[in-house]
Design a protein around this nucleic acid. Structure first.
Lengths: 74, 74
DNA sequence: ACATAATGTAAATCAAACTATACATTAAGT
DNA sequence: ACTTAATGTATAGTTTGATTTACATTATGT
């Protein structure tokens, strides 16, 4: 329950960037693959710190990856 | 330990916005005053969800309030 | 001098992010 | 047919964000 209000485009971005795998992204940002899986599934929203690291990895502003709103899908 | 790598301008912004008190900001974003205190002190970085709510309250993009880097102060 | 509002600090507890491990499924290569 | 890489799913456990409560300090107003 307690639905997550933060969505993201991580999955899409992985494929736009070199077909990066979940494991590769996990390694780059310093978390486990399970964390990436959970984020892509939308199970929970990341810490701000992790969000910054992911944004940095994709060379994008944080708000182009993560979005906040009632509508889960943007 | 485990120093926090995310800083913010919350305190500055409170005074730029109507001299908003910690309690008022806490109420607006739906947390307790202690959470605001801890954030201003830099004790930890907020959840991404809370970061979005704070940014929304100040009508600013998230990255103008929160920043990531070795240098704690921006 | 007294009251009140805003802030600082601290510690116990709760809730959510994140880890670790494990196993199943699908697709691609040899 | 077999192996390997990538992904899906699940669950118990650890870490850390956030709450709650409580009390101290400083400034302002009366």
């Amino acid at each position: 329950m307690s639905k997550n209000l933060v969505g993201n485009h991580i999955r899409k971005l992985r494929f736009n960037h070199d077909e990066m795998t979940q494991q590769q992204l996990a390694d780059k940002v310093g978390v486990t693959r399970q964390t990436i899986v959970a984020l892509e599934k939308g199970n929970y929203s990341p810490s701000l710190e992790l969000a910054f690291r992911i944004a940095h990895t994709f060379n994008l502003p944080l708000e182009e990856i993560f979005y906040y709103g009632e509508n889960t899908k943007q």
